[in-house]
Design a binder for these strands. Sequence first.
DNA 1: GATTAGGGTTTG
Length: 637
Amino acid sequence: MSLVPAKGYIYTPLNQLKDGTVVNVYGVVKFFKPPYLSKGTDYCSVVTIVDQTNVKLTCLLFSGNYEALPIIYKNGDIVRFHRLKIQVYKKETQGITSSGFASVTFEGTLGAPVIPRTSSKYFNFTTEDHKMVEALRVWASNHIPRSSSLLQLCDVQPMQYFDLTCQLLGKAEVDGTSFLLKVWDGTRTPFPSWRVLIRDLVLEGDLSHMHRLQNLTIDILVYDNHVRVAKSLKIGSFLRIYSLHTKLQSNSESQSTLLSLEFHLHGGTSYGRGIRVLPENNSDVDQLKKVLESVDLTASQSLLGGVCVSQCENSLPTLSSSGSVSLYEVERCQQLSATILTDRQYLEKTPLCAILKQKAPQQYRIRAKLRSYKPRRLFESVKLYCPKCFTLQEVPHDGDLDIILQEGAAKTPDTKLQNTSLYDSNMWTTEDQGGRKIALHFVKNHGILPLPNECVIFIEGGVLSEICELSNKFHGVIPVRSGIEDLELDLSAPFLFQEKTHHYGCKQCSSLRPIQNLNSLVDKIPWTPSSVAEVLGIVPLQYVFVMTFTLDDGTGVLEAYLMDSDKFFQIPASEILLNDDLQKSMDMIMDMLCPPGIKIDAYPWLECLIKSYNVTHGTEQKICYQLFDTTVAEDLI
DNA sequence: GATTAGGGTTTG
């Protein structure tokens, strides 16, 4: 011991480090690998720090003594390294332990007590250090985004890496390369944990305690280098497991699919994968203990028991040993889907959170609930769709249609175009409407006029109310106007009125042919909208429902677009606006899929196929989703 | 005394 009072250490800012020097530094932990046994003789910990200069430094820390390495629990912690050697590797500056290396770690949270964590028996700690820590805390709070991968089990999703703070309840050897840890954090996962099969006798821990907590415990398989650490852990200890991986497991059992969550701590140390024991005095452990103590065991137990559980249990070979079955699976056993697939039933289900991370285009099978949908008013969801140019347009309102037809009616019918081999013509002049002239052309069949209900007529100068009235009497009404050489159509209006249905053609895609072409249809009575469209060069528009479904499967939420003429709802979109009963059916279906006034938990599940595709809006790229090959289950209709 | 690892997820 020196008798000279400690002069205080000099700390080098991270932007002033020189190759080959040995320095003291302070920094905020940006990344770290908890200490692990290296392939050499020492433990190793890789720690990346940053300071107010905004320069990062990755440090390779070795020690034969596990405790001598920095006691870092999470990113954001603040470290002080003494006697760190600076060197350059692959053109990057790095720090490495040198003789006499020592470290002290502090919590990084602004306002938390400044308590040094170190294994050093004697260490220098002055008000200067206190100030350094406080300054770094303030700087970090303003400059480093608060991103933590620390999650509670209730917040985990399938296909995710996260850090877990938990208590060890049980452990068991599985085989040479993997080891089972049973842990809990007092919260319940969105999907029940998988149950890893083990030989009954190898499970170490309080079996009755584990049984009581069965819905709250998860099974974690740890692999390779982590097995050694896992074996050494004490039951009851508090752990932080870094970069734990979740994966959704789907077991198809008879007709129902049971989902469970797998937890893996893969081999290697990438991304800081590892396990660290947390001391009892750790603030996060304090918090965890409170959660564990407040768990209402009677509530978690009462979910079990009863006939249904034992029935389901028999069909679940993957759940065993300690295993019983959670309420989730019971519910899933019982729930039928409100929508079903009409194709590709072989596809595996994908959770929405996984879909949201992937690139387009792809196709998925999903199981989700309909959280909400748009538009809420039925008539707003009906559109006209061109199957050729894929454009959507609004169905013209009757008022607008009336205006379009009246514009056409302003033109006087040309008598030269009347009474041809195709049709017989009649013309009237209205008395009270400014002498508006109306011409009707009755299409003949081999020179003979058919009965009205088989007869198609052309009308010139007619207004909407007249056309509608005539379309009830005749097989079909085609509004026309006199052109230079022939009667002509205007695709702003329907090309055919049939009963109450208005048939539209696409203005962009149609190339109109002479009306006399209908001569080729005289033997094909009754005329259908598609045959009329075909000979007149019209690309007919389809009536479709266009809706946006907000789907939620508990792992994520996505908006999927539905475009359907009649397959999904099994209601023709072309007729819905004309038929009160169909509208009632539609309302009933939507209320079934997305019941008003109750919680989403009680909504039915929907089995759907969706496809993802890329949409470019200016410079912005976006992935959209569309439902396809899905239909409302028959028992709902 | 040198080595270890040198951040950037397994494929169980």
